[in-house]
């Protein structure tokens, strides 16, 4: 389980306008690049102080590469991060609030208690 790394991907992409577009257009390529080049970056430090041990599990990598936000919910990614980034990428393709309601519909099979989001 690397919920922290899932969240780190969502967090770092969501705050960067260029990465938001890159992830929308090329999700698999963006995830591969990010895991190779960015996953171990300590966000408040220069590159020489990077971590050495962070990597996705296969299911996590695939969920990100497939833009599979219901699966990200099931894996315990932070729902706020997932929602914010996916709104940024796909709200534009729908009527106002259309994407948000479709998002809820695609998660309708989830019942309480929801997956644990603690990292």
């Amino acid at each position: 389980m690397s919920k922290y790394l899932l969240n780190k991907f969502l967090f770092t992409v969501d705050r960067d306008p260029e990465l938001v577009e890159r992830y929308r257009e090329d999700p698999r390529g963006t995830v591969e690049w990010w895991e190779a080049e960015q996953a171990n970056r300590l966000l408040s430090c220069h590159g020489g102080e990077a971590s050495t041990w962070l990597r996705f599990e296969d299911a996590e990598r695939e969920a990100l590469a497939a833009h599979d936000y219901p699966r990200l919910f099931e894996l315990g990614a932070h729902p706020f991060l997932t929602l914010t980034l996916f709104i940024a990428m796909f709200e534009r393709d729908h009527e106002p609030l259309g994407f948000q309601t479709e998002y809820a519909r695609r998660l309708a099979h989830m019942t309480l208690p929801y997956p644990d989001i603690a990292t």
């Binding site: 919910f73 932070h78 706020f80 929602l83 609030l97 309601t101 998002y103 809820a104 519909r105 929801y114």
Partner: peptide, 9 residues
């Protein structure tokens, strides 16, 4: 609810 099935009702 944010990012879950009960959002934006």
């Amino acid at each position: 609810e944010l990012g879950g099935p009960r959002q934006f009702g």
